[in-house]
Design a protein around this nucleic acid. Structure first.
Length: 267
DNA sequence: ATGGTTGGTTACCAA
């Protein structure tokens, strides 16, 4: 039985952390790695090093300073697309089909600023609108009976066990009821299965991100699960493994504040 | 209540 491995990682600058990308590819050998926050114009992404690591197939949408998504694969990526939402070309959503495999989407949902009120914080409104746009996009342009994987930094931790304190984060952007409601609606609109929570029970506390703003991220352990892997239903039953690679949060010399998340799927 | 750190870029903005 052969298997496909798909990973996602908010890398927080692909140029600064290209060595960590190569380390991840070497140690975990995903068939496709989806990156977010590459923070690099397309021409400046160090593709030569990635290609030398035998990941010769790269689809990317990058811009100066902000955002940026990529898909790195060890086999051809067919029908590459860049998808825009909310009338912006801000490099948050790309897709391509892995040869003899599923269609893969790398998504970076806006963080949403500090104030969870769209009347006073337009970034929060943009976040909610972006999730709504994704909820509309998939049923409009795709069939949920096809093999499709949507991964990325969704910037929302939906479950009580996805945050270090449900009570203390109810009014903190990423875990407010309105955001969770929007994400739940997007999930239901295409019958997405949360592949990670399917393998790691919802009762279990699980984080994929720890802020830089703490003296000792591991000791304080105030994390959130912001990074997700969703699959369509025919695929859901074939997921055999899901992992959040917490050790990468401590990778020297300068870790990303997110760790990689991966799944294995029978193919 | 507040401040804490990081990356890209180069005066702060976004996270």
């Amino acid at each position: 039985m052969s298997s496909i491995r798909i990973a996602t990682w908010n890398i927080n600058s692909v140029r600064l952390r290209i060595d960590m990308v190569l380390r991840f590819l070497d140690e975990y050998k995903p068939d496709a790695l989806c990156l977010q926050e590459t923070k690099s114009p397309d021409g400046l992404i160090p593709t030569a090093a990635i290609e030398a690591a035998e990941y010769g197939h790269i689809h990317k949408a990058g811009m100066k300073r902000y955002n940026g998504v990529a898909i790195i694969a060890n086999r051809p990526l067919q029908d590459p697309e860049i998808i825009n939402h909310c009338g912006k070309e801000d490099c948050r959503h790309i897709a391509a089909t892995l040869a003899d495999g599923p269609e893969v989407h790398s998504i970076y949902i806006p963080a949403g600023g500090d104030e969870p009120d769209r009347e006073v914080n337009e970034k929060f409104g943009h976040k909610l609108d972006f999730v709504n746009s994704l909820a509309d996009w998939f049923p409009r342009y795709r069939k949920s009976s096809n093999d499709i994987v949507a991964v990325g930094d969704f910037n929302i931790a939906p479950l009580e066990t996805d945050v270090w304190s449900h009570k203390q984060l109810l009014k903190v952007v990423s875990h407010t009821p309105i955001e969770v409601e929007h994400l739940d609606n997007m999930q239901a609109a295409f019958n997405w299965q949360d592949a990670v929570r399917q393998m790691i029970p919802p009762e279990e506390v699980l984080f994929s991100w720890w802020s830089y703003r703490s003296r000792d991220w591991a000791a304080s352990n105030r994390g959130r699960r912001l990074d997700h892997i969703w699959v369509t239903q025919p695929m859901g039953d074939k997921v055999t493994n899901a992992e959040v690679l917490k050790p990468a949060r401590g990778w020297e010399p300068k870790p990303s504040d997110h760790c990689p998340v991966l799944i294995d799927v029978e193919s």
